[in-house]
Design a protein around this nucleic acid. Structure first.
Length: 154
DNA sequence: GCCAACGTTGGC
DNA sequence: GCCAACGTTGGC
């Protein structure tokens, strides 16, 4: 069954434009160092799952485009690179700790700001709107997905 | 296994 | 830059 996700990216690192301009429109979702988020990528994501591409830690946080999961899980090589800020001394190629997927950007949309998401009663249970939520990858229900797609097309 | 200290996230 | 909230670490 197809699932839906919201994935945060800092536009200063990888924006929706960067992702669309990437080779074959796919970007490796590198740098996730949170077990819950990793587990979503490793255990639950399927190629073709829908992705809301969210810009975080920026002047205008919000949903900036649509994407899809483009690969199965595989090790994030930055964990083995001592020069990377994502280096993890406890990870080895034989026993990788951090897995990621590739994400294919499909389209840039009109920005749907965080404040507008908060204004929707039907999105009150959207995980990124919950108090204190910091997860960079969160599941989205089909109902929430439909609601957001509708808002994006307004 | 508890829990204090510390680090990180991310909106504002 | 602030700070609330949460995750991780490590001593015990």
């Amino acid at each position: 069954m197809k699932h839906y996700w919201l994935m945060k990216s800092e536009p200063g690192e990888v924006s929706i434009d960067d992702a669309l301009n990437a080779r074959q429109q796919t970007v490796p979702w590198t740098g996730v160092r949170n077990y819950q988020a990793r587990n979503f990528m490793r255990d639950a994501m399927q190629v073709g799952d829908g992705v809301l591409f969210y810009h975080s830690s920026c002047a205008e946080p919000g949903i900036a485009g649509l994407a899809e999961v483009a690969s199965g899980p595989y090790p994030d090589d930055t964990q083995f690179d001592a020069k990377s800020k994502y280096f993890d001394a406890k990870a080895t190629p034989e026993s990788p700790r951090w897995m990621m997927v590739d994400v294919r950007a499909l389209q840039k949309t009109q920005l749907l700001p965080l404040a507008e998401l908060r204004a929707q009663a039907s999105l009150e249970d959207l995980l990124i709107l919950k108090r204190g939520n910091r997860l960079s990858i969160t599941p989205v229900t089909p109902e929430q997905w439909r609601c957001i797609i509708k808002l994006l097309h307004k």
